[in-house]
Simulated assay, not measured.
Amino acid sequence: MPDYRSDLVDIAGKIERETDRAWRFNDGTRTVWLPKSQVEWDPDARTMAMPEWLARDKELI
């Protein structure tokens, strides 16, 4: 069975603002809006998991 998590990346940062559909996320360098439908916030680790393509598109990696 394929590992679907392999194309996900975890980016450390903080949530600055939240709407029903998105989070405004700051990684210490850049602030971007991320759609909740594409990402998952881990409050304990303070990381946002997202597809690699989205992280590249938002210039987080």
Rank of each mutant, 00 (worst) to 15 (best):
P43M: 04
S6D: 14
K58M: 09
M1E: 13
T47Y: 02
E18T: 15
L60Q: 01
S37A: 12
A22G: 09
T19M: 11
R17T: 10
V32N: 00
D27V: 06
P51N: 11
W33L: 09
E18A: 12
T31Y: 07
E18R: 13
A49L: 04
A49W: 00
Q38E: 15
R56M: 08
M50F: 03
R17A: 15
Y4Q: 14
E16M: 15
K58N: 03
A12C: 10
A22R: 05
G13D: 05
A22I: 05
E59R: 07
F25G: 01
S6T: 14
L54K: 02
E52W: 05
K14P: 05
P43E: 05
E18H: 09
R21V: 14
P51A: 13
D42N: 14
M48F: 06
T29I: 07
I15G: 00
A49I: 02
G28P: 05
I15A: 03
A22L: 09
A22E: 09
D44I: 04
P43A: 07
L54H: 00
S37P: 02
W23Y: 15
M50A: 06
R46V: 03
E18V: 14
N26S: 10
R24T: 14
M48S: 04
I61N: 04
K58R: 14
W53E: 15
R46K: 12
L54V: 04
K36P: 04
E16V: 10
D57R: 07
P51K: 07
M50Q: 00
D10S: 14
W23P: 00
T47R: 02
D20Y: 04
P2T: 14
E52S: 08
P43I: 03
D27T: 11
T29C: 07
M48A: 08
E18Y: 07
A45M: 10
W53G: 01
E59Y: 03
R17G: 08
